[in-house]
Design a protein around this nucleic acid. Structure first.
Lengths: 73, 73
DNA sequence: ATGAGTCTACAGCCTATGAGTAGCAATTCC
DNA sequence: GGAATTGCTACTCATAGGCTGTAGACTCAT
């Protein structure tokens, strides 16, 4: 398992934005066309997400990529 | 080969920032502890870079992640 | 002009790991 | 106590990571 500090921060950022929109992990998964448990893994900082999936998340959360990264670094 | 539109934009962004600092691909590769040809592949939009390598690039380029993503989406 | 040095593009390759899923336990909230 | 949500383990398959080697463009000195 990965468990890197930056990944954890990114995961928390995703969770924060998801809850802000009142979505469940499954809701977000559907919107981003990703799997429920995969979203869970991201939020826990256990997944080293590749760029194109980060883009999917940003689109699903309806925010620019740069905003998604805000607060991560 | 990948060749996705978002990846191309990201690659161009990396190139733009690299040249702004007057670095060669090899210079950036050394700074980010990545391989020379890998950097080339990223700039050509042929690599679906994972999060932790995006972080490395941002640090090597001495800019926040959010700035690196700026202009990509 | 030619040879050396620098920089980049690109094809190909192997292995390490990301992507995606299933199943069940734990938790939270009616 | 039932339903919805999330945590977590484990697994396969696809692909990202990292590298080698070759070739072309360009600069500059000899």
């Amino acid at each position: 398992m990965v468990k890197n500090h930056e990944l954890i921060k990114f995961g928390l950022r995703v969770r924060e934005l998801r809850l802000l929109k009142g979505l469940s992990q499954e809701d977000l998964a559907d919107l981003a066309d990703l799997h429920r448990t995969y979203i869970g893994g991201i939020e826990r900082g256990e997944r080293n997400v590749a760029f194109l999936n980060i883009v999917r998340l940003a689109k699903a959360l309806e925010i620019p990529l740069s905003d998604l990264m805000k607060g991560v670094d």
